[in-house]
Design a protein around this nucleic acid. Structure first.
Lengths: 140, 140
DNA sequence: GGCTATTCGTCAGATCAACTGACTAAAGGA
DNA sequence: TCCTTTAGTCAGTTGATCTGACGAATAGCC
């Protein structure tokens, strides 16, 4: 017996991610940031302190300018991003986190850390460390 | 220095999954199964040999009947699924893999194993085993 | 047997997160 | 100056989900 169903690695990774994301995005509204969806979180982490241009953000997040504009528009409307004209380039706007956006990013990071801690509690810290190490090695 | 950027676990999991899925679904057409997208793969694994009803598949895959119907329709059109009326319940249809669907499932499993092997080669078999163990423990 | 509640699958429509293609305006290089 | 590239926008499409409403069949109860 025990030909453990041998779930594919993809299935396992997906499930773990879904679990984590559920914790983060299922609780972010309750922490004072309504309207934040999964796709928003990813882009916030790509915005450096000095701000960045839409095209650069799109490139660094691996998506099209149009997709980035669509997400950035939400965050701007919610007050977490502001865009100022680039003094050095009349075509470009610089996108930058507002104080509210910084607080949001902090809240997301905290929720993520919580979720990670909950996982560590379930599987034990040693396995958690091994998990993180392996994933970091994979990501290069 | 070296306050390693501390990517969130979510980011790491997502990246690993994307990598894997890219290998599987980026190559499945070349193996003779055109038109297969990510969402299709997931549902194939939920179909038992004797077949199952749409509602049961939806439940086991954690999605609505409507979403399952949408995906199942694609697979039926491509010849990988067939639906026969349930003799025991006039409302229901039984969905079942065709031989082509079984071959598709096999091809997906093979690609997944390949991708996993490629990852193991990158990070070493010990880390790979640790990764799998941790994820399996998480999935329960 | 007959009523009622539940379940099965479908229809219609909405949302979100991406995409491609076509475009204007500005910048930069020869 | 002219040509090419780049920044961002507009319009439209696709994929994968969702909700709500529905007709038909089944199942439970009296």
């Amino acid at each position: 017996m025990s030909t453990t169903p041998r779930r594919t690695l993809g299935t396992l990774l997906r499930a773990a991610y879904a679990d984590l994301a559920e914790h983060v995005y299922g609780n972010i509204a309750a922490r004072g940031f309504p309207g934040i969806r999964r796709a928003h979180g990813g882009i916030l982490r790509h915005i450096p302190a000095q701000g960045a241009r839409l095209s650069d953000l799109a490139r660094s997040a691996g998506m099209t300018k149009q997709s980035m504009a669509y997400l950035a528009e939400d965050l701007t409307r919610l007050g977490h991003l502001e865009s100022i004209p680039d003094p050095a380039d009349g075509r470009a706007r610089i996108l930058r986190l507002t104080p509210s956006g910084q607080a949001l990013l902090q809240a997301l990071t905290a929720l993520s850390a919580e979720a990670e801690a909950a996982m560590a509690a379930r599987i034990g810290p040693a396995r958690m460390t091994a998990l993180r190490r392996a994933l970091e090695r994979l990501a290069g």
